[in-house]
Write a protein that binds this DNA or RNA. Sequence first.
RNA 1: GCGGGCAUGGCGGAAUGGUAGACGCGCUAGAUUUAGGUUCUAGUUUUUUCGGAAGUGAAGGUUCAAGUCCUUUUGCCCGCACCA
Length: 856
Amino acid sequence: MESRYTPANIERKWQEAWVNQGLHRTSTDQGKPKFYALSMFPYPSGNLHMGHVRVYTIVDVIARIKRMQGYRVLNPMGWDAFGLPAENAAIERGVHPAKWTYANIDQMRDQLKDLGISFDWDKEIATCSPDYYKWTQWMFLQFFQGGLAYQKEATVNWDPIDQTVLANEQVDSAGISWRSGAKVERKLLRQWFLKITDYAEQLLQDLDQLDGWPEKVRLMQANWIGKSTGAQVTFTTEQGDDLVVFTTRPDTLWGATFMVIAPEHPLVEKLTVAGQTEAIKAYQEMAAKKSDVDRSAEGKEKTGVWTGSCAINPVNGAKVPIWIADYVMMDYGTGAIMAVPAHDQRDFEFAKKFGLGIKVVVQPEGEVLDGGTIAEAWAGAGVMVNSEALDGVVAGKGKGQSVERAVEWLEANNKGKGTTNFRLRDWLISRQRYWGSPIPIIHCDDCGAVAVADDQLPVELPVDVEFSGKGSPLAKLESWVNVPCPTCGKPAKRETDTMDTFMCSSWYFMRYPDAQNDGAAFDPAVGNDWMAVDQYVGGIEHAILHLLYSRFFTKVVRDRGLLTCDEPFKRLLTQGMVQGRTFKNPTTGQYVIPQNVADPANPVDPTTGEVLDVVYEKMSKSKHNGVAPSDVISKYGADTARMFILFKAPPEKDLEWDDADVEGQFRFMNRIWRLVTESGVNSGNAIATPENLSKDEKVLRRAIHTAIKEITEDMTDEYQFNTAISELMKLSNALSDAACKDSPVYAEGIRTLLLLLAPFAPHIADELWMGMGFETSVHVQAFPVVDAGALVVDELTIVIQVLGKTRGTIEVAATLSKDEVEAAARASEVAQKYIAGKEVKKVIVVPGKLVNFVVG
RNA sequence: GCGGGCAUGGCGGAAUGGUAGACGCGCUAGAUUUAGGUUCUAGUUUUUUCGGAAGUGAAGGUUCAAGUCCUUUUGCCCGCACCA
C-alpha cells in the first residue's frame, strides 16, 4: 500500500472491483428483511451537479449501511427522460430527441459511477424507452378502463413558450410555468384528465399515515387538496333554472342579498337581459384575457356587472339580483355564490361598491350591528337573528351551532344538503409535444375514444418527424395519425397528444423491483415484496407535484388489484440545496465572476473597486457560483466530496459549499490513511477480549463502542450524517491519542473505524481494509454492534450544582448508591464552599449526572 | 391575510429539561522545515478587581434546574391565498 493517500489511484479500482464482485446487485435472499432505498431519479440533462451528488450520496450511505446490517437492499437508478429540453435541442440543433437523451444518459451514468454510488444498474430504467413507456401507456389504460381518465373541454393553462398546456400543479401562484418560466395564458381546449379528485378524501386522510414525512410536506399537500365542509343550496332563477351554490356558511343564507356567478358560468347567457348584453359581453371578454392571478391581483378592487336577472332564495323566498364578477372562480365550488355582505368581507366590498343591500343575521354579544352603517363585514361570533328557524342559535361551526343546524334544516326541508368541497382539480395530462409517451387512444367518429389493445402496446413514437417548434409534430404526421378504428375498422385517428412526463414518474418506483419484466408492468408478487419504498430522498420542489401524483397512482394501482400498499413512500427526506459562494455587487446587484476577484478574503469589484457582498446562493451559471463535481473528484476524490457534503450540514438544510471545509475533510481522510497504514494492524491481529483490560484499554474500548452506539443511533430513522461523521472524527482522534497501541483493543479500534467509515467513504475504507490482508470487501462485513459492557464506567463525573448553578464536578465510583453520591457531594470541597453554614432545604440527585443543593 | 419553519462563538453546526458551544472551518502562538505547504502541540463566547460574573433574537413565566417546556414579541425564510 502506498504511504500517501492518492484517491485517484484507488477509487476507480474499487468501483470496478465492486461491479465484478456483484456487490450492489439486489439480494434475492428472502431470509433477509427488505429495504427499498430510493432517490428521485434525475432528468438526464447531461451534467451531474452538486444537488445530484448530495441526494445520491445520502441514499448511498443509507443503502450501504443497511446492507452491512443484514438487509437485502434495493437501490436503483433510472432516468426521467421524456421532456421538453430534448425536443428543444432537436429544434435548435437538429439532433433527434432520442439521440440527445441517450447521449446525456451515458454521460451522466459515467459521472455517477465516479461517485462510487452502490446502484444496482441491472434495475436501470429510462422512461423514454419503449420497454418502459409501453407500461406507462398500459397504466393510462388502467385509469381509462377504471373510468378515471376522461376528456373534457376546459379552460386550461397554456404555456406560450413551450407551446403546450400545463396542469394546475405546474403553474405557481404568480401564473408562471414551473418549467419555462413563461406567464401562462388561458385557453379553451379539449384535453385528457385523470380523476384525482375521486381520491381527494383518501389522499387527505392518508397523510396521517405518513409520520415518516416532513410535517411541512404533509401540510402543503393538505392545503393543496383544500377540503372545506359546508352545504350546497339550490336557488331558482327567474328563468326557472337551478342555480347551485356552495357555501361553508349555510347558516347565513337568510342574509344573502345578491348572488355572484363566475363570468364563464354556463347560465350567464340565459340570465342576461336585453339591456345588459353588451356590458356582460365586455366584462366576459375582459375576464377571459386575465389569468386567475391577474384576477386576484390589481389591488383586489371588486368589479362586476348585473345580469339583469334575479333568483329566489330557497330559504326565505327573497328575490336577489344575480351578478357576474371575476372574484368568483368557475373552477372552485359550483362557480356561483350566494353573497352575504354583512358577514363576508369580499361580498361586503362588492355590495358597497354597487350599492347592494346588507342584511345582518349574526349579532355579536353586547353590540347591535346595522347593515346600513357597518364599516366592514362581521365574521366573528354571535347569535343568529333574522333567520327564522335559526334565530337565537349560537353562530359558528361547532356542535349544535348554527352551521350544523342550518344543514339539518336544509336537508329536512329539501332545500340543500351538507357537502364537502375540494380545491384539488382533476389532473390535466395532455401535452401538445412530441417527446413524451403517446396516449394510447384512437378516436373514431362512431365509437368515440377507443383504447389501443394491450397487445398492441406500446404505441411507439414515430422517429421521422419534423421539429419546427410550432405545434405538435405528431399531429402533422398523417401516416401515423390515420389508422382504422380498433372496434369497427372504419378510418379513425390516433390521439396526437403525449402524456405529461409526471405520468412516467408516478409509477417508476413500482417498476424498479421488476425492471426487466417484459410481460407486465411488474409482477404483483415482486411488487408487493418490495413496496413501499422505505426511504425516499429528493427535493422539496416535488412536495406537491410528483409526490401527490405518485400517491394517487399507488391508490389506483391498489384498487386495480395490482399492489396492496396504500402509500408508496414510508419515509421521506427532503434534502436542502447546495449553495455556492457568490460575489455580489451591493449597489447594482450584479454577480461577479470569482476569477476576477483578486483577493477572495476581501473581495472588491474589479471594475468599480466597491466592496462586494459575499453570500451563498443556489448554484447557477448566471451567478458564477457553481462547483463542478468532476473538478472536486479529480482534486480530492469522491470520498472527500461525499464526506464533506454529509458533514457540512444536516441533510434537510441548505449546504454552503466552502473550499476550505473541503480541504478540512480531505485532511481527515489523510489522517485516517496515516492512522491505519502506520498502525501496523492487520487481519492477523488478535481481536480484543473484554476481560482483564487495563485502564487505558478500557478507556479506548469505551471510545470505540461509544462511536458505534452514536453512529448507529444517528443512522436509525432520522439520518444525522453530520453528527455521525463527527463521531468518526472523535474515534479517529481517540485512536491517535491512544496510550495502548500494542493492545488488541487498538486493533479492534482500527478495524471498527474502517467498518464504521465504509458506508460514508467506501473507497478508502475498502483500500485500507483489504490492505490489512482481509479476504473479502469491507462492504460485505457486518456493521459493528455495540457492546453495552464496554460503555460501563468505573468512575462517574457528577456535576455539583447549588441553587441550579454549576459549581464544579466530583468523581465518584459508579457503584455508589444515590445516598452515597449525595453524601460524597455534600462532603466535597466544591459544595462545602457554597453550602457551609447554610440550611440545605432540598437535595436533588440525578443518578449518574448531578447533585443540586437548594440552600436557604 | 392564513398556515408552517428558523434564530446558539468570526463561520458551518452540537447539545433524552441536567457542566451550552461536541465535531469541523477559520484565527493566534509555538515546534518541525532552508522557506512555503504538510504535520504536531497549546489556545480561541464575552467580561473581569483573576475570586468570579454574564451569555443561546427580545420580554415574561413554569421548574431544584430552561437553548430545550408555556405565554407574548421581533426579525428572516418557505408554502398557500378574492377558496365562497
